[in-house]
């Protein structure tokens, strides 16, 4: 979401100096219209809603900060928000380096054969989101693939309990879900790095960590940024994965937000408020992390 927004603003910045005024504006109209209808207007509605009140099944128009106050007051939300950000962050921290390493192997080691592997990765996305979560459940479950294999090998005597219905299970499953999505942008920005670039750097004395920090990461940065956005924002916003593999102690803020919009005890204004607090928090963490990457990779 964020990435699309920044892409749009970057686009407008790029067009303005050459186009000048109305011409550029006309070019942007379809995109602007799209964001207005499918993003800005719904968000605005939700934002307005977050200042209303719910009474039974009725919504009462108001301008009150009650909902935000409630969130600020109750530790349960703090725990959930913290867990959400931490799980999102850890997932991104695993997914992005993995995707980076995978892209490196696809581009530089497998070279042309890497394209085929990439197609397979893409194909795996077609199997669908829920199917893949259930697949992870059968791997991580008490009698799942991993536990039975380990027991058969005699590594463990009884099934490892933490493998399923835990934060661990959530992180692993999200990693599996998001890895293909993160490989795509990193792989495509790595296509700009040629063997010559790496060889020149090595020839000039660079090696391993230094090479990664001064050449590979900065040159693949646009892809890394998009992949980080995918991994972190989608992991932090997911509520299906925690409800299926996260267990009773594993629910995330997304589950609570979803609950506010359906069934008995729903509270749309409160749901809107939680959603906005979450979004603000997630964006702050995301931009801070991007600053950090930039700072670490200056040569």
């Amino acid at each position: 979401m964020t990435d699309l927004l920044t892409a749009a603003s970057r686009g407008s910045r790029a067009i303005r100096p050459s186009g000048g005024g109305s011409g550029a504006f006309r070019l942007l109209t379809p995109a602007a219209l799209y964001y207005a209808v499918f993003f800005a207007i719904p968000m605005l509605c939700l934002f307005v809603l977050s200042f209303w009140r719910a009474q039974g099944f009725d919504l009462i128009v108001d301008f009150s900060l009650d909902n935000y106050w409630k969130i600020a007051q109750s530790p349960v939300y703090h725990v959930l928000l913290l867990r959400t950000v931490v799980i999102g962050f850890i997932t991104a921290l695993i997914v992005v380096p993995l995707a980076f390493a995978l892209s490196y192997v696809l581009h530089f080691v497998l070279a042309r054969r890497g394209q085929i592997v990439l197609q397979l990765v893409l194909l795996s996305l077609f199997s669908g989101y829920l199917v893949r979560i259930y697949a992870w459940r059968t791997i991580l479950g008490k009698q799942g693939l991993l536990n039975s294999t380990l027991m058969w090998l005699g590594v463990i005597d009884s099934p490892l309990e933490f493998l399923i219905y835990s934060n661990f299970a959530t992180v692993i499953t999200l990693t599996g879900l998001l890895l293909p999505l993160a490989v795509l942008p990193i792989y495509s920005s790595m296509a700009n790095i040629s063997r010559d670039h790496l060889e020149v750097a090595r020839d000039l004395g660079s090696r391993r960590a230094h090479l990664v920090r001064t050449i590979l990461v900065p040159m693949a940065l646009p892809g890394i940024r998009t992949a980080s956005a995918f991994a972190f924002l989608l992991a932090a916003g997911d509520f299906v994965t925690p409800s299926l593999v996260g267990g009773t102690q594993g629910i995330m803020i997304g589950n609570v937000i979803a609950d506010q919009f359906r069934g008995i005890g729903s509270n749309w204004p409160l749901g809107g408020a939680i959603a906005f607090v979450t979004m603000a928090l997630v964006l702050v963490v995301y931009f801070a992390a991007m600053r950090l990457i930039r700072w670490v990779t200056t040569w």
Binding site: N192, S194, D196, H197, E199, V200, A201, D203, L204, I215, P218, M219, L221
Partner: peptide
């Protein structure tokens, strides 16, 4: 020794 390639391979960033 150091090498110069046909296409320069400057670091674009």
């Amino acid at each position: 020794s150091n090498i110069v390639f046909q296409r320069g391979a400057l670091f674009p960033h």
